[in-house]
Design a protein around this nucleic acid. Sequence first.
DNA 1: ATATTAAACGGAGACGTCTCCGTTTGTCAA
DNA 2: TTGACAAACGGAGACGTCTCCGTTTAATAT
Lengths: 199, 199
Amino acid sequence: MSPNRSERRDAAENRQRILDSALRLFEQHGVEQVSMNQIAIEAQIGPGTLYRRYRNKGELCLELMKENIILLFEQIEEYLNLNRAESASERLKGVLALFLRFREKKAQLLKGVEESASAGRTKSRTQSPIYHELHQLFVGLFDEMAASAAEPSRLNGVFAADILLTALSSDSYSFQRDVRGHTPETILEQLCLTFIPSP
Amino acid sequence: MSPNRSERRDAAENRQRILDSALRLFEQHGVEQVSMNQIAIEAQIGPGTLYRRYRNKGELCLELMKENIILLFEQIEEYLNLNRAESASERLKGVLALFLRFREKKAQLLKGVEESASAGRTKSRTQSPIYHELHQLFVGLFDEMAASAAEPSRLNGVFAADILLTALSSDSYSFQRDVRGHTPETILEQLCLTFIPSP
DNA sequence: ATATTAAACGGAGACGTCTCCGTTTGTCAA
DNA sequence: TTGACAAACGGAGACGTCTCCGTTTAATAT
């Protein structure tokens, strides 16, 4: 990208080397197996320099996904635009499907993000911008669903979105995948059955 | 307890010292702030000895809660016995209330358990016996609810129980408490609204 | 009593994360 | 060009988890 007005040349070079090194190591050994130290060595910088730029592995993972994340939200926006007429529950399902596709592709990096996030002081969830944006989106859809329901429910849209999001976290999702043997499709189905009032 | 047929005397003494030390340190500084090293030092044993007995802090926390956990399940069983006549959804609510009470009282230790569990190789959830037992219980209730429902649902009881359990995890629960400002009561209410089909 | 042995011990050290701080180095203004 | 300064650097080291392995020791058989 364009040199951000004030990023030193050497810093920019290092940044690129970090990203390249991390990507290579991650692909070769898997995100979980690679330590920040290894990345620092591979990138030929000191650990301090690495941590100066990325407070933890999660931030690095996030950086590596940045473009894909932007793409994801563009897809979502596009889908939402093209399906304005659909019911809120149908649109929720659509958005979920898009996210699940993303989650499948970026499983490892996503996990890397969540692990460091929860390790750090701050509790996690609201941390990652991904989840924050998704949350807002879900709240909107839940509220809309509630508004168009026959009988009003005391169910809080924010709460429902929170729970849905934790169900989409790496921990929960991988568990359904690897232990329960679900496919993305059956997970989507079950999520809809759980979070969307009876059809 | 009774010397388990073959626990060396010195080992038993150490075990007790570990438990005492851990309890004291946890109460004084909070579970999260206390390291296994500190516990080892306080108990006057080597780190290796500590880890030989408890593979991680989580196992130690679990041990510290053992009696309370047993009590919890006794309470649940009693409640279930006294309320056989109630609907499955009502009983689910009752069990949840009991667990939430437990979770409030043992929040720190519970968190300790979950953190080490997820840090370790194995994924977590099914790990802790608490969650495993609760899971079975929930599955039974969900299935019962489905059986007595007007229209059959494709919602999987196992899946619903899994999601409910992740919603009860330290991460999710503390988030609702501390960030969203919920009380145990409102959380219980919202959980019911989320996981129990419209009344 | 003594020998045997399996369990328990303990601490060094591998490896990780992350911070602190003295040193180096672009950059920009004079 | 040069001087000053903020930013970037790097690595030592604090602290944590957890393992490995030579040594000690309680329990049991002789």
